[in-house]
Design a protein around this nucleic acid. Structure first.
Lengths: 119, 119
DNA sequence: GTAACGTACAACCAAATGGTTGCACAACTG
DNA sequence: CAGTTGTGCAACCATTTGGTTGTACGTTAC
């Protein structure tokens, strides 16, 4: 997931109503009006939330007759999860590096300390 | 993760600079000024990004002498990952439900909902 | 002490967000 | 045909965001 895309996805997820819409859309396809019934806010407000989700590609809209059907895009959701998993991987890498460093110290090695990649 | 907390976490993650700060902080502790050096924006701007991350508890600050040290909080990161995993679980549940429904239809179950249209 | 460094915070600004209402329009229903 | 329903969109508003500059303050170095 490219960084700008990730911006859009996490922004879209940073709202309780939008996460709820995604959950409903995952369970089953939803028309925008059926979604709007569920919330106290106006139809237009819900429409805007759906638009935010659509821009992030977390959902796709598909016209069916006079209705617009909202479907969840699991792929984007998975890419977001994977991005968070990368953070975890960075953490594990750090642990490995520190372990290696400690082992080196313990063995009394006096050679050059690790070439920290610094990033 | 409570919903308002999730709002803060995903909002914090919805910015390339902030995700980058988190990555750096995971690799090693960072002072705010050492972080600020890495970006073209002002020190105050970086300070604000760190404040957003701190509010979401994705990082914690700890004073060390005159410096303020930023450390990543993996726990919050993991809770965010878990929340995304729940979406995946909803999806799997849907698949199971649909499979069950199809199996029921195929077996010509006595209580099949569509038997009315058979003749 | 003074100087330099790292930080905190306020004031300010432009742009984006999240909500509203109102209106137009296309597609079904009778 | 007329009426209802579902949608799209513009205009408007208050608040938040993401950046700036400037100032003040505590800590370390000399």
């Amino acid at each position: 997931m490219s960084e700008p895309e990730a911006d859009a996805v996490f922004h879209a997820l940073a709202d309780t109503t939008r996460r709820d819409i995604v959950r409903r859309a995952i369970r089953r396809e939803q028309s925008i009006s059926s979604l709007a019934e569920r919330y106290t806010m106006s139809f237009a407000a819900v429409q805007k939330h759906v638009a935010v989700l659509e821009r992030s590609t977390l959902v796709v809209k598909e016209r069916r007759g006079k209705e617009q059907i909202v479907r969840a895009n699991l792929d984007t959701l998975r890419r977001a999860t994977r991005l968070l998993d990368e953070f975890e991987a960075i953490w594990r890498d750090r642990v490995v590096r520190i372990d290696a460093l400690l082992a080196e110290e313990a063995s009394g090695a006096t050679t050059a300390p690790s070439t920290e990649s610094e990033r």
